[in-house]
């Protein structure tokens, strides 16, 4: 059935570049899977876990602020940050989660709710991905 070339690129480096059998992405309108020979697609992605299968084994990535482009059997994921499950700093994510929760419960006028919520989502899904390794 052939393979799908997956490239995950962030402004600071190329995180993944490999032949995969399947990729599952957290799209803004729901999770979707991409198999080889997929139709050309451009989709924005949510903060969350990206799963891809290499040699029958699942690998997990944390993705935030990105979009995916599928064309000619090449899938490019451009994200503001992407981390392999093994590289996630759980202590930092845990600290970020607590900080965000505190900000959200503080009911302070000065707190930017949207930003606090986004950072909470990021921290929670980082921890979630880290637990999958």
């Amino acid at each position: 059935m052939g393979t799908l070339q997956l490239e995950v690129v962030t402004p600071d480096k190329t995180v993944v570049s490999s032949e995969t059998e399947m990729v599952v992405c957290p799209g803004v309108e729901g999770e979707f899977g991409v198999l080889p020979q997929h139709v050309s697609l451009l989709s924005a992605l949510k903060i969350g876990a990206l799963r891809y299968r290499v040699g029958g084994k699942d690998e997990y990535l944390f993705i935030s602020g990105g979009f995916a482009d599928v064309n000619n059997n090449i899938m490019t994921v451009l994200a503001e940050s992407a981390e392999r499950a093994a590289d996630i700093d759980t202590a930092r994510a845990q600290a970020a989660k607590e900080r965000a929760e505190k900000r959200l419960t503080a009911h302070d006028e000065a707190v930017d709710m949207a930003r606090a919520e986004a950072s909470l989502t990021r921290a929670v899904s980082r921890l979630h991905v880290a637990a999958l390794r």
């Binding site: 309108e29 979707f32 050309s40 697609l41 451009l42 989709s43 924005a44 064309n71 000619n72």
Partner: peptide
């Protein structure tokens, strides 16, 4: 050269 080989699907 290797433009989209079929019409793009956009989501959203």
């Amino acid at each position: 050269g290797n433009g989209p080989h079929c019409e793009y699907v956009y989501e959203p």
